[in-house]
Design a protein around this nucleic acid. Structure first.
Lengths: 212, 212
DNA sequence: CTAGAATTGTGAAGGTTTTCACAAGCCGTT
DNA sequence: AACGGCTTGTGAAAACCTTCACAATTCTAG
């Protein structure tokens, strides 16, 4: 068992294990070995055991792990044993796709507000929510106990929204804008940059073509 | 200058530098130092220089880098000095959002086909394209010289599409489905997993709450 | 032409993450 | 109760990545 120093990649893998454990549970297995988990997640058995060992000792030697017990443990580690309240800022195409994509709700993330600056969009009904003014973010965060913000606005609007986010005291942001901005210390920002992923593929294809 | 062993994170940073260099060019500067690039990309000057040094020696001591020359070099390194032909598989919400999002086209990625399995969608007009059958992927890849596939289908459809991708001989896939599958050696797959990002935020928030 | 300020490119040091390898533990069988 | 097969948890080693630190180079000013 160890202290606070879990790497980025380890968290990613834990999230992956969590998903796999759900699949395995659905398939009806009661136990799983680090080997099995490794095969399904494309890593090694030693890696799986090391990742888990940072949080405790959940397996039985000779036997493996109880699928259900491990799933619960990992869920707890990731903070997914509760629901999170999320505000969506940006009611454009990407915002709409995210909102209607069921995946977030299924994993415990509920949209409790949708915000935009476009006056034409204000008051639009999205599911049970009405689109509200981005500038009202601080109040909305207070009223709805918002804990995370999903940012789906154009790059040029990001700076402005980030100020509101800070004023509102939100600590976690998932940013979909391809922006360059650097953020305050205490704010946790993660960027989803789809273009960057394509660029990485481009790089790899190019490398493969010209092996020299 | 060095051989083939560029890390994931280095590629990410190169992509970031590329974007920043465009910004700097727009601002009219002629030269830039590793220090400047570092500040804007949230890394260190030494890191910037080390990243670039894997591909050659592009700067002038005492002076820095020529913005335009460096931008072109990085563009070339990333394989972005050309356009790429991309097929979109999955004409649902996420597919639509990706298709209409201008960011890809702006960076050199052109959608040359849209595919879906839903008969109701076949023949729909998307921009200048008609939605075609997913099962025709191999022909379409040949006809349109497709080089990358963007996968925006439900998790349960992924395996099937991946088989077609392999049959078609496409080597690069950007996958938006939250799926577990591991892929053949020669196929380059990158996953964009938005839920995983939220889960990482959840983990960090939880850690922050219970510092012990 | 020299001195000084700036900045690169890069070996070496330092740090972090992954892999290895094995003792310790569990279970079923005889 | 002892054996053999299997699997965990974990130090130690290896691999990988980042930071440091400095010689080498360029430019400007005097």
């Amino acid at each position: 068992m160890s202290s606070r120093k879990i790497s980025e990649s380890a968290i990613r893998r834990l999230s992956f294990y969590h998903r796999i454990l759900e699949d395995i549970a659905d398939e009806g297995s009661e136990t799983v070995s680090s080997q099995d988990l490794a095969k399904r997640s494309g890593t090694t058995a030693a890696q799986v055991r090391k990742d888990l060992s940072h949080f405790g000792s959940f397996g039985k030697r000779g036997l493996g792990y109880s699928v259900e017990a491990l799933r619960e443990r990992v869920q707890g580690i990731l903070g997914l044993d509760r629901r999170w309240k999320v505000a969506l800022v940006g009611a454009g195409r990407i915002g709409a796709a995210l909102f209607e994509y069921g995946g977030f709700v299924k994993r415990g993330f509920d949209f409790v507000a949708v915000l935009d600056t476009d006056p034409a969009k204000l008051g639009e009904r999205w599911g049970t929510l009405l689109v509200r003014r981005t500038s009202d973010l601080p109040e909305i965060v207070r009223e709805e106990a918002v804990e995370m913000v999903v940012l789906a606005v154009p790059a040029e609007a990001v700076a402005e929204v980030m100020e509101l986010v800070e004023k509102a005291g939100v600590r976690a942001v998932l940013n979909f804008a391809p922006t360059t901005l650097k953020v305050p210390e205490h704010l946790m920002v993660r960027d989803v940059n789809m273009v960057m992923e394509l660029e990485a593929l481009s790089f790899s294809l190019k490398q493969a073509e010209q092996p020299e």
